[in-house]
Write a protein that binds this DNA or RNA. Structure first.
Lengths: 178, 178
DNA sequence: GGCTGTTAGTTTAAATTTCAAGGAGAGGTC
DNA sequence: GACCTCTCCTTGAAATTTAAACTAACAGCC
């Protein structure tokens, strides 16, 4: 979100010393569209998955990451990095998934501090059953509405934004190291 | 997120009757970029605003909406619709903002069930002070990294997605009516 | 007026996320 | 070994969000 539209200082070249770089009207429209779409989309997917799979979107994403990994397992920190969430959040999430029987924890032999999160057979089963519905929801909400060119653009744009926010970036914060 | 990449059925024309329409590899890449960027971005902005303004991004957005409205006020339901959140969530949020003194509630004269959320002078002040920093964060994370053409594309794409998820859509759910 | 169904908004409890702190092992250095 | 620092992960409490009642008021109808 941006500041209110009032007192919109537009010409960047004429701005005094410390006048903030307000978004232009067009930039504001873009930004608001983004916020609205992102909010509605996350809400939509959360609800779809909560209904059909009994878990929020983020948790589903964790199961997917595990399913794709070598022995259906990943170190906690790795999983957190892949999913772009803090380790604290992951700890809680895995605790819940463990209680559901979708995930199991295993000690790391080489590093006694380490823990593996392992996708159980039951977890894989839940994933198999809920995946088609989820994919359909994503298609219906996003891909079905965009031209191939727009899909490509979206990919490029979001890749750029994501890269800019990676913890490796200078000055960026490191969510999973806190 | 999508299902695991294994057993990727690609050709849509050759699929049997009920084979789910899995995302292609390219679609998956696009989708994952989107999820990563959206996650990192929301996290980044939340943290920035929590630090500099003492509230999460959504709450900041509420203040902005109010500041732009005629008498710095909006009916609860209207505000919820603008912000794309449920009325329940808004109730909680306004309660907190009220406790901070940023927002005040007022009865609606014409409808005794109704409530206005009103931005206080103090709330406006907080907004003024935190807006420049927030805009800078948005610029640095998004606009500074995209070409004008990409910015335009992003706007179009997100507008389409948002429209598809509006409650007016057939079959869409109506968050603020629950 | 009384009845019925809907709307506006709140409230409670449960689930999830954040925040700050802490425990324990790893990896040095001396 | 003692010590220091960093890493891995967890924990508990506070904040926020969700889900499901719930109250009060409107609105139409008889």
């Amino acid at each position: 979100m941006e500041p209110m539209n009032t007192a919109s200082a537009s010409a960047p070249a004429s701005a005094p010393v410390d006048e903030p770089n307000w978004l232009t009207d067009e930039e504001q429209r873009v930004w608001r569209s983004y916020i609205e779409a992102a909010t509605l989309l996350e809400d939509h997917l959360d609800r779809q998955l909560q209904r059909d799979a009994g878990m929020p979107h983020v948790y589903y994403g964790l199961l997917v990451k595990l399913a794709e990994s070598p022995r259906r397992r990943l170190r906690m920190t790795e999983l957190a990095m892949h999913a772009k969430i803090t380790r604290s959040r992951l700890s809680h999430a895995v605790a819940r998934l463990e209680k559901n029987g979708w995930v199991r924890r295993e000690d790391c032999p080489s590093d006694k501090r380490g823990q593996f999160a392992v996708l159980t057979d039951q977890g894989l089963e839940v994933l198999k059953q809920s995946a088609p519905g989820h994919v359909a929801a994503v298609r219906q909400a996003v891909f079905d509405r965009l031209t191939p060119q727009q899909q490509k653009s979206l990919g490029e744009i979001m890749r750029i934004v994501a890269e800019g926010l990676q913890p490796s970036e200078a000055g960026a914060d490191l969510p999973w190291l806190r």
